[in-house]
Amino acid sequence: MSGSETTKLIPFDRLTATAVAIDRPNVDTDQIIPARYLALPREEQVSHLFHDLRYRDDGAPREGFPLNEPTAAGAQILIAERNFACGSSREHAVTVLVDNGFRVFIAPSFGDIFNNNCFQNGALPIRLPEERIREMLDHLARRPDARITVDLDAQTVTGPDNWTQSFEIDSFRKQCLLTGSDDISLTLRHEPDIAAYERRAEAHADWL
């Protein structure tokens, strides 16, 4: 992992790409990257994305797992069912997805920590209504090479059937993604506020 992560992220504005569908609910971050790979250097983790779902015990790719399909090559969008990436706080779940080319995650809901971790890595989690997700998943099952467009500035997703659906995002997070700025550099500008807070707080709670 290099120091570049604390300086600038790659700005995100608009993306048209194919998608991979992980059509099941409650996909936890242990599935995205199993615990036994977390101590590896980041560049060695990249090949372990969804390892146990993706490969058999003998290491051969598991047939039918979406990432093993030829159409998955080049996909930059991942679509999943409710409560995607719940569980462990491991940020590796985001970085291993990003290192595999994914920049956008679309689901009815996300694990809260994963959701925050996305923004620390220039990735965009989008919540869409369950019915929309269902439509997209069904469409992708028929046409896995369908392209989806995500426009952050307009806050829209344009699906393979050419419908357009808007999504919500905090304006703070949107700006950070559009400009590629990270939290720490922003916070350091508030150093005087933090110092002032500490003086006030320590007068009150002197036992900490």
Binding site: E5, T6, S89, R90, E91, V94, D112, I113, N116, N117, Q120, N121, D170, F172, D182, D183, I184, L186, T187, L188, H190, E191, I194, E198
Partner: peptide, 22 residues
């Protein structure tokens, strides 16, 4: 509450975190 690794760096550096109120 739990945070990710980048946020741990953030807390180490600034003793604070950007949060949206749950």
């Amino acid at each position: 509450f739990g945070v990710g690794s980048s946020e741990v760096t953030h807390v180490l550096a600034t003793q604070s975190l950007w949060q949206r109120k749950p």
